[in-house]
Simulated scan of single mutants.
Amino acid sequence: MIPIGISSGHSSPSTHPPHTLLAADIGGTKSNLALYKYDGSKLALTKEEKYPTKDFKGPNALIEKFLGSEAIPDRICLGVAGPVQDGKAKITNVHWEMDAAQLSAQFDNHPVFIVNDLEANAYGLATLEQIDIHSLHTGHPQKGNIALISPGTGLGEAGLFWDGTHYFPFATEGGHSDFSPITELDDDLLVYLRRKFGHVSWERVLSGPGIVNIFNFLKEERDMDAPGWLLDRMAVHDVAAEISENGDTVAICVETMRIFFRYLATEAGNLALKAKATGGIYIGGGIVPKNVKKIDYGAFMKAFREKGRMKPLLEDIPVQIILNEKTALTGAAWYAINKC
Rank of each mutant, 00 (worst) to 15 (best):
D316T: 14
I287H: 13
P151C: 09
I182Y: 08
P209R: 06
T29A: 08
F179C: 08
G269I: 05
S135R: 04
L103C: 04
S11A: 04
W229H: 13
A265S: 04
P169N: 06
N60L: 07
K143V: 01
A34E: 12
K50Q: 13
A105F: 09
A122V: 10
D55K: 14
Y335E: 09
K219P: 00
D186H: 12
S7P: 02
H137I: 01
D187H: 12
A332H: 09
Y167D: 07
S207K: 08
L148N: 08
V191R: 15
S31P: 04
G284T: 05
G174Y: 13
R204E: 11
G174S: 09
R194N: 15
V80T: 07
I321R: 02
I146H: 05
P318G: 04
N246R: 12
F215Q: 01
G9D: 04
E315P: 00
I281Y: 08
M257P: 09
I211Q: 09
R262S: 07
L148C: 09
L155Y: 03
A328C: 12
N109I: 01
F161A: 03
Y51H: 12
F107P: 03
V254W: 00
L125G: 01
K293R: 12
I91G: 01
E255H: 04
G210C: 02
W162Y: 12
K47L: 06
E64M: 02
A251R: 01
P181W: 08
M257H: 11
F217M: 00
Y297F: 06
H95D: 15
N145M: 09
A275P: 00
G152P: 12
K219N: 02
V212E: 06
H199Q: 15
F197N: 12
L273T: 07
K294S: 14
N145D: 11
E184D: 13
A328F: 05
A61H: 09
Y263M: 00
E325Q: 15
Y38C: 05
K276E: 14
I149K: 01
L313Y: 11
V236N: 00
S31V: 10
K57S: 13
S180Y: 07
S180M: 11
K65R: 14
G124R: 09
V288A: 05
D178C: 05
A105N: 13
K54M: 06
L118C: 15
A34P: 11
F197I: 03
V254F: 01
I146F: 06
P59L: 13
E203M: 00
K90Y: 05
D316F: 01
A71Y: 03
A226S: 10
G210N: 03
L313A: 04
P209F: 02
K294F: 08
I182S: 08
V288W: 09
I295N: 01
R309D: 04
H10K: 10
A44G: 00
N145G: 07
G152E: 06
